[in-house]
């Protein structure tokens, strides 16, 4: 994971970045949430705007350095303050990623529920050998993330913004094959359970009838 956050000296950075019309339409609403002298607070939402725009325009969700400078100028911050935020949070990619960013949670609950299997399946399906790598075809980048806050449905595989829950090796292979065909399966539990309800159906209040 350290690789994903190195300063990217070996990377050819775009020299230029500008918000497109769609991003510009989103920005005023974000800035309006913060008082005039506190515009710097909008740095995280704006970095998300950048990342989404990069996905739209280049099919790679990441934040180039030029974009961080644009955000800094827009918010009246020193560029280094934006670099600090962008490198601190794993949600921001400071180097290009594949079209599908596979974010694997390996924190304790996911690990107990078999995240190792999911990781192995990802590697097998994509040909990636370690975290931080992008597959040869440029379709997938696999990174290890900390708890994404969906432990009840562990293990979790987050693809770009979507959570695929209750994963195992077979489901992972299936999911990746579908993504490779550019089909995006519906996110959520992959074993068909309703949100975080018990696996295999309700276990309590079985004899209750709806109140008359």
């Amino acid at each position: 994971m350290a690789d994903a956050h190195a300063d990217g000296d070996d990377l050819t950075q775009p020299t230029h970045f500008a918000f497109d019309a769609q991003s510009e339409a989103e920005i005023p609403g974000i800035l309006a949430k913060y008082p005039p002298a506190r515009q710097a607070s909008a740095v995280i939402p704006l970095l998300y705007v950048v990342q989404k725009q990069m996905q739209r325009t280049t099919a790679s969700r990441w934040v180039p350095r030029a974009a961080m400078d644009v955000v800094a100028a827009r918010l009246g911050m020193a560029p280094i303050r934006v670099y600090e935020v962008a490198t601190f949070y794993f949600m921001f990619n400071t180097r290009p990623v594949g079209k599908f960013h596979l974010q694997l949670c390996t924190t304790t609950p996911c690990w107990l529920r078999g995240s190792d299997e999911v990781v192995a399946a990802c590697k097998k399906a994509t040909g990636i050998t370690q975290f931080g790598e992008t597959s040869a075809d440029g379709m997938f980048t696999m990174t290890e993330v900390e708890c994404v806050g969906a432990c009840v449905n562990a293990p979790i595989l987050q693809v770009n913004d979507d959570f695929y829950e209750d994963m195992d090796a077979a489901l992972t292979l299936e999911l990746i094959e579908a993504l490779r065909r550019s089909e995006i399966p519906a996110p959520g539990s992959m074993i068909g359970r309703q949100t975080s309800a018990p696996v295999g159906g309700p276990t309590t209040l079985l004899d209750s009838t709806p109140a008359e």
């Binding site: 350290a2 190195a6 020193a78 303050r81």
Partner: peptide, 20 residues
């Protein structure tokens, strides 16, 4: 001259200018 900062975090945290 706000040019120095702490980039990344945890064990990867580094003090520097990010852009050399």
């Amino acid at each position: 001259v706000p040019e120095l900062g702490a980039t990344a975090r945890g064990e990867s945290m580094e003090v520097g200018t990010y852009v050399e």
